[in-house]
Design a protein around this nucleic acid. Structure first.
Lengths: 347, 347
DNA sequence: TTGAATTAAGCAAACGTTTGCGTGAATTTT
DNA sequence: AAAATTCACGCAAACGTTTGCTTAATTCAA
C-alpha cells in the first residue's frame, strides 16, 4: 500500500551519496561529516522520508514488538493490565500486538504459532481457562524469546510470572470477615481448573482453619466463570440452606454484587445479616449499595510490572536471568458491605 | 533473539534444492512436483521450520497488521470496541497493534509517526480529547493506507467513520423522559469540544423543542470528563436549584449513577421524583439500584464494524471507495430508573 | 521422429536497511 | 617530508522471503 514511499536509496540518488552514507547520517554516525549529516537530514525532512522499520527489523533482527495473549480484552481486569503493559512498553520504545484467546486452547495455540513467525522480542500471556498444559509455550524458550505470564499462570511451567498472592488475599479477606465476628462464612469459588481460583479457595479455607472454624462444603458454591448470572444462582442456593451464613467471601466482585442483590431482595441486611467481601475492586464495587469491601487486584500495576520484567529480560543481553516470579501485594479495601452497624449482630 | 531459527535456506541445503523451490513448495505452487512438495513440507515440520513473516512482509509489501489508536484501553467502551476489532481482524488474518494516546495530542501525533514506519496496512483511530484537527492523519491518505475512525471522529476531516447516531440517541433518551411525563429535564453534558458530546446535547435540546419544552440552561451541567466525581458535583448543583427537575438525561452512565446516589441520599426517589437516563449501557447500569435506563452504545459491534470496513478498504485493490460513513443504531434500554410506579407523579 | 507443449526446477534480483571492511584524501605527527 | 593517523565516505554482503524469467528434462501430438 505504501504508495510512493521515499527510501534511503532515493535520498542517496538525489544527493549523489551512497545509501550507507545516508543510513549512517540519519543515525548520527560519527564517521559522517557534520555538514553532510545535516544536509541529509534536511533533505529527508523535505521529502518526507521516514524509515521502513520492517526492513530495519529484518536486518537488525529486532522488532521492538511484544506479543500479548489475553483471554479477553473486554474484561475489566485485562483491559487495565493491558493498559499498564502498553503504557510501560510505549515509554520503553516497544509496541504491543494483542491477541485474545477467548479462553480457547485451540486459539491460544494458534496465536503462539503466529507470534512465532513474527519475530516478536518477547511474549506476555495470561492463560485461558481451557489451558492446562503449556507445551505450546516451550517454543519461545527454545527460540530464546523471553516470556512472562501474568495472573493466570501455570504452576508446572517454568517461566517468569507476575501474580498477586491470591492465597494471601483470600486469607486476608476471610480473616477480615472473622475479625468482624462472622462465624459461618460462605464462599463463591471460581473455576477450580485455574490456579488463582483454587488459591482463593485455599486461602479461604486456611483462614477458617486458623480461626478454628470448620470448613463446611455446603457453604461453598462453585462456578465456572464467576459471572453475574452464576452469582445469582449461587446466592439463591445459599438462601436455601437451613442455617444461613453470616459472612461471604466471593472470588470476584460480580458474584459478590449479585449476592448482595439477591440477599437484599430476600430482605436480608448487608452487612448486618451477611457481610460480604468481593475480589478485584471493580469500579462498580465503590458505587454499589452498600459499597463493597473487596481486594484490589492491582490490574494496571500488574500489567506494568509484567512489561517491565519482560523488557528487562529482553534487554538483558547476557541471558543471566532464567526466570523470575514477582508477587504483588494486594490491598483489602474495607467498605460498607463489611461495616457492621453497632446495632448489628452481637459478637 | 531468534536463537537458531531454521530458514528456507537451511531446508534448501539439506535437500539439495534451491531456496525458490522450497519457498514454492511450502506455498503449494503448481510448478513444483507433488513428491518434492511433500518432502519439503515433511522436512520443514521435522526441523521445526516456520516462516519469518518480517522477511515475507518486506518482500511482499504486506504486513497484515492494522494499527489502532485509542485514548485509553481501560475504558469500558474502548476495551469492548478493541475486542470487536481484534476478533474480526483475527478471523480475517490480521493482527492488531494497539496504542493509547492517553488523550494527549502530542502522543497521538507520535503514534501516527510510529505507525507510518511500520508498514501497517490500515489504521483505526478514536480521537483523543485534545485533538481538534487531524492533520497528523493526512499522511495515511498520502500513503494510501486506509484509515477508519470510530466513535470520536472529526467532522472536518474526510475519512471513513463508524459512529452511533448520538444526536438521535440523545433525542430518543430525552423523548422517553418526556413520554413518561417529565416536564423539567436536566442534562449532564460531556466535553463540548468533542463532537459526540455536543451531539448528545443537541439531541437533548431538539427533543425538548419538539415537545415544546423550553430549554433551560440552568438545568444543563457541563463536565470535562464525565467522571463519577464530576457527576457528584453536577448532581449537587442541581439540588441547589429552587425548582428541581423531574427528569435527567446524562451523557454517560457514570454521571447518571453518581446522580442517582446523590439524589437518593437527598431522600429523593428515583424514578418517581427524578427519572434518570444514562448513556452507554455499562455493566454497572443493570446492577445499580434502581437499574438504569440507558442507551446501548454497541461498543463491540462498533469495533467489529470498524475492522470490517477497514479490511474491506485494505482489500479493495482498485481503490474505488474513497470514504464511507457507517452509522450504527442504538437501543434505548428501559429499566427501573425511568419506570414510574403507578403511585408516582400525576401525568 | 520432429517440433511443440508441459513439467519441475534453478538463477538472480528485489524488498529497504544496516554494517564490516576498504579506500582515498586530508590532516597531523615526528 | 615522509609516515602515521584521522576523516569521510563507498562497496557489497547480509537479513529471509518471493517471484519473473530461464532452463533442462520429460511428455505429447502429428
Amino acid at each position: 500500500m505504501a504508495g510512493s514511499r521515499i527510501t534511503i536509496k532515493d535520498l542517496a540518488e538525489k544527493m549523489n551519496l551512497s545509501v550507507s552514507t545516508i543510513s549512517r547520517a540519519l543515525h548520527d554516525h560519527p564517521s559522517i561529516g557534520k555538514s553532510t549529516t545535516d544536509e541529509v537530514k534536511k533533505l529527508a525532512k523535505e521529502l518526507g522520508y521516514f524509515p521502513n522499520s520492517v526492513a530495519s527489523n529484518l536486518r537488525r533482527n529486532k522488532t521492538h514488538t511484544i506479543g500479548v495473549i489475553v483471554p479477553r480484552i473486554d474484561i475489566h481486569f485485562h483491559s487495565h493490565a493491558i493498559s499498564g503493559i502498553e503504557d510501560f512498553a510505549y515509554k520503553s520504545g516497544y509496541n504491543v500486538t494483542i491477541f485474545q484467546s477467548k479462553d480457547s486452547l485451540e486459539r491460544e495455540i494458534a496465536i503462539t504459532e503466529i507470534l512465532q513467525t513474527k519475530m516478536v522480542e518477547g511474549v506476555i500471556a495470561c492463560l485461558g481457562l481451557e489451558t492446562t498444559n503449556c507445551n505450546h509455550f516451550t517454543k519461545f524458550k527454545e527460540l530464546n524469546v523471553p516470556l512472562v505470564f501474568y495472573d493466570r499462570v501455570s504452576k508446572d511451567f517454568e517461566a517468569s510470572k507476575v501474580v498477586i498472592d491470591d492465597f494471601e488475599a483470600a486469607y486476608k479477606a476471610t480473616a477480615h470477615l472473622v475479625s468482624i465476628g462472622c462465624k459461618r462464612i460462605s464462599h463463591i469459588a471460581g473455576n477450580q481448573k485455574t490456579d488463582i481460583f483454587k488459591l482463593r479457595l485455599e486461602g479461604y479455607k486456611a483462614a477458617l482453619n486458623h480461626y478454628n472454624i470448620p470448613v463446611d462444603e455446603n457453604l461453598i458454591q462453585y462456578t465456572s466463570e464467576l459471572s453475574y448470572e452464576e452469582g445469582v444462582i449461587c446466592a439463591k442456593n445459599i438462601l436455601k440452606l437451613e442455617v444461613l451464613p453470616d459472612g461471604m467471601f466471593c472470588a470476584n466482585d460480580y458474584t459478590a454484587i449479585s449476592a448482595i442483590q439477591v440477599f437484599r431482595k430476600a430482605n436480608l441486611n448487608i452487612p448486618n445479616d451477611i457481610a460480604i467481601v468481593g475480589f478485584s475492586n471493580y469500579p462498580i464495587s465503590k458505587v454499589i449499595e452498600p459499597t463493597l469491601t473487596t481486594i484490589d487486584d492491582r490490574a494496571f500495576e500488574m500489567g506494568k510490572a509484567t512489561a517491565k520484567l519482560l523488557i528487562r529480560q529482553i534487554e538483558d543481553t547476557d541471558h543471566i536471568i532464567s526466570s523470575e516470579t514477582i508477587v504483588l501485594k494486594t490491598d483489602l479495601i474495607i467498605r460498607d458491605s463489611t461495616n457492621l452497624k453497632s446495632s448489628g449482630r452481637i459478637l
